[in-house]
Amino acid sequence: MSTVAVIDYGMGNLRSVSKALEHVAPDLNVVVTDDADTIRGAERIVFPGVGAMRDCMAELERHNLSELVKEVATDRPFLGICLGMQLLLDRSEENEGTAGLGILPGEVKQFPNPLIDADDANGERLKIPHMGWNQVAQQIDHPMWSEIADQSRFYFVHSYYAEPKTPDEIAASSRYGFDFTCALYRDNIFATQFHPEKSQHAGLQLLKNFTQWNGRS
């Protein structure tokens, strides 16, 4: 039986991710784990995360998982979600500057506060965090977008956003005051700022696509 490992480093609710994966792929063996051998043995990796970047990095270190995440991010289908996407980049503005894992080149920036809505005639102030269902504009053809309509809405909750160094790695963007990158990809890696496990039909389809993806874009 094919195994997907959801990496557990003590940050947040992993139950939703694992339940959603079990829902879309009943034959899959979904394990929530921090065990190095189990992670190395899995065909697919899900790398979730919520909370603050500094806490996430500290917990990764404490669980001796930083190097292992870098290792398994090189050679098999790998899905980063929310902080699990931001952590892949070089660094974040959060907590006066925090180093990331440096797997993808780029930075994590904070939404300006106040954030003024450029699309609104009255210049309305947008709330932070960016919380709720926003449209996702697919920037590339990719197996992970299979059966998902362009501009489908996904569920977001975040105050920081990814700014990749090159546009070559942008899989999707979304608009909140301005256009920001909400999905990244490279080779066997796909990563989303939004939460597919909380995004109903579109999100479940994305997770299903992940369970069927061969890791090539």
């Binding site: 269902w133 926003n134 608009r175």
Partner: peptide, 8 residues
């Protein structure tokens, strides 16, 4: 296109 208002 932007963030949707939510019904809960």
């Amino acid at each position: 296109m932007s963030l949707a208002k939510r019904i809960i």
